[in-house]
Write a protein that binds this DNA or RNA. Structure first.
Lengths: 398, 398
DNA sequence: CCCGGCTGTGACAACGTTGTCCAGGCTCTA
DNA sequence: TAGAGCCTGGACAACGTTGTCACAGCCGGG
């Protein structure tokens, strides 16, 4: 089976130009080549005698990448003008049905496809937007990017995306590469905290929306979840169930969302009049191993915490693992929902964001910018939702 | 609870400063316009830049369609030739340090960024590849697309991607749109089963690799998981633990992977000499509700199944939910691993694919095609791995 | 009969970049 | 000091498309 498919490969790849289309192509090219009388052609006339330049070799059909028919080729084959082909391809009015048919046939026969690079160059707009996120594989960003893609698609745009891996330099590199591609707009989940590098781009008309975390040192549209309020509610939920010694495990406070969630934790504790002890908080841990150590630490000692608030889904999952091995029952509320949270025993109580809505809102805002219907940058905060599933309702076990 | 936050998004207007709007916008432009065509340099430098946000500048009508400095502008400002700027921008040799410095300063001052559309048009290669997948939000495709992105990045390419939503027409539309953008290559997770529409593109030099499912009716590189073998092993695992009445719930058999897994199921049963009853198989169900009904059906009746083999991760998750509500303990093996499968009680035994490796392999093969180092299309099958976690080792409960 | 407008078509110039090739100015050697 | 050769810089033509404009033919109304 494998051999059979392999053997036909070369025929399909390279063989097809020999008999049918090949003659036509070369004839057309020859006509085209000699048909520019305006230039004072010394090298042109000598072309047959002079040894090949790199250029002429590069122009040989078999060596040229993208040796594709152009509108000129289609026009020649259909016996019409270049612009008429353009009109047909773009569905512009003012072409006789008969002419249109001839052009369509030529397009079909040559396998022509419009070169959008050239089109972009001419028209200015690329009908594509860029998405810079942290990690394509993070389940939180899946729905978010899909939402962006859907809105994008609805506006006839393609989506180019890349991951910054939480590295500010890489974020910048990516964003600027996208700008060089002349994307119409950018949706960015920031890794860094200084985005002044985007100022020339924004000034040049690149629509820009930041999601999940705010932009740094520039004025721009931002779409966020209410991290502060969500965390405060989640911690208050634990307090309402009788907990007083509550731990907090979160990401580096230089990340805005992490800082906000920490602030929410502190606010809830303060509202309840509970002084926070230093050992209850673990900041800046991300990798599972360190989260594990941090959790075990605050669960041991003379006055261990009876509940944990986890700052994001990765932390939550690790804490769930630690608690599963733990004798005493410890309450848990996590920020971010995750699949199967309801299937665990107990189900995991979470403060849920709506990543799809984040993405949708950001993308819609982007296209509003492009419409010109948006005048002032705004900061939009989407609400979070507390989903009680059991783990957050466990009473304190002293 | 949470009514206040959950009803609407909180919108906070961010400090967008001046309202000195549009009047002198147009005046500035008028000056600029009349002076620029012949000698564009000095008035640019002399122009006073009033403190304004990047946004208010971008909103000016003449900037709306992205008017940006070009190499020509940079050249004029630096007092050098066009090509010299090009050399500096591309790091080509043959420019005096002093000249280079002048050019760099001009670039900085004007906020110039090379227009890659024009570059692409000229050079032929776009340094971007397209990824057509089924659903960006599906956790299975997260690691896959990240792997593709990483390889792509290592080769200096950007990744453009879109979701086909399992719709062949949309797949085709997307793939061809990407070709019109002149991506250098395509990684496709096929939704349809006829890809002859890609023949002109492949012939024109677009590298193409299919992942997860084979290409239809064309000869192309394919990277797959060993669905047949994996399913056979998984079902054999259940048989080895004493099961004979084993159910199978999978996707539509028109999807290649689904058909292969069904075939694996049948093979394992046949190897064990167990005749398969019609009611044990449920094909073509995807949405949770129908999976649920199918599962409940085969778990009821006079001779219910004692074990279920689930054809993909979405099915597995739904079956887990059904079994959780079920009195009798039913064994389960699922195709595809998923996060937290180990945390459930019992842990879910799965036949794991390696989506990241699928993506990486496909992307590497793509760039090999682009190097010219690949001549013949191949079909690569990656092995699966059975991970026993408990649910697949439950004995039959009759 | 002419005139003005309308319709279908095509020639041509941009869009911003890079490859090619040539022109000066320089250094180095005889 | 002149010729050869190198280094730097710039003019120009592509790349494939679309916007502008002009032109030819045709119509109906005066």
């Amino acid at each position: 089976m494998l051999d059979a498919t392999s053997s036909t490969a070369t025929q399909i790849r390279h063989g097809a130009t020999d008999n049918t289309g090949g003659q036509h192509d070369t004839t057309d090219k020859a006509v085209n080549d000699t048909a520019s009388p305006t230039t004072p052609v010394d090298d042109r006339t000598g072309q047959r005698i002079v040894p090949e330049t790199a250029h002429s070799i590069a122009r040989r059909p078999e060596n040229r990448y993208g040796n594709r028919p152009t509108m000129k080729d289609v026009a020649a084959r259909a016996g019409v003008g270049l612009k008429t082909v353009s009109r047909v391809v773009n569905g512009e009015p003012g072409v006789t049905p008969d002419t249109e048919r001839r052009v369509q046939e030529a397009i079909e026969a040559l396998g022509f496809r419009r070169n959008d690079s050239a089109r972009v160059l001419r028209k200015g707009r690329t009908a594509s937007i860029g998405l810079v996120l942290e990690d394509l594989a993070d389940p939180f960003y899946g729905p978010l990017s899909r939402a962006v893609e859907e809105v994008s698609r609805a506006h006839g745009s393609l989506l180019i995306n890349g991951s910054s891996a939480e590295d500010p330099d890489r974020e910048q590199e990516l964003a600027l590469a996208l700008c060089a591609r002349r994307v119409d707009g950018l949706v960015i989940i920031p890794a860094g905290d200084d985005h002044r590098y985007l100022e020339p781009e924004i000034r040049a008309g690149v629509a820009t929306v930041f999601v999940d975390r705010p932009a740094g040192r520039i004025d721009a549209d931002v779409v966020l979840s209410d991290s502060f309020g969500g965390a405060r509610d989640g911690v208050a939920h634990l307090i309402a169930h009788g907990h007083r010694r509550i731990g907090f495990i979160g990401d580096m406070p230089r990340i805005h969302t992490a800082a906000e969630r920490l602030r929410g934790y502190r606010a809830a504790m303060e509202d309840a009049g509970i002084p926070v002890e230093e050992g209850w908080m673990s900041l800046g841990v991300t990798d599972p191993e360190r989260v594990r150590r941090a959790a075990e630490e605050m669960l041991s000692g003379p006055a261990p915490v009876t509940a944990v608030f986890a700052g994001n889904n990765r932390v939550t999952v690790t804490v769930v693992r630690v608690l599963a091995e733990h004798a005493r029952r410890v309450a848990l509320v996590g920020f971010d929902d995750f699949e199967l949270a309801d299937l665990l025993r107990p189900g995991i109580t979470v403060v849920a964001q709506d990543p799809a809505r984040l993405g949708r809102t950001a993308a819609e805002r982007l296209f509003q910018q492009l419409d010109g219907s948006l005048l002032t940058p705004e900061r939009i905060e989407l609400p979070t939702r507390l989903i009680a599933r059991g783990s957050g309702e466990l009473p304190p076990a002293d």
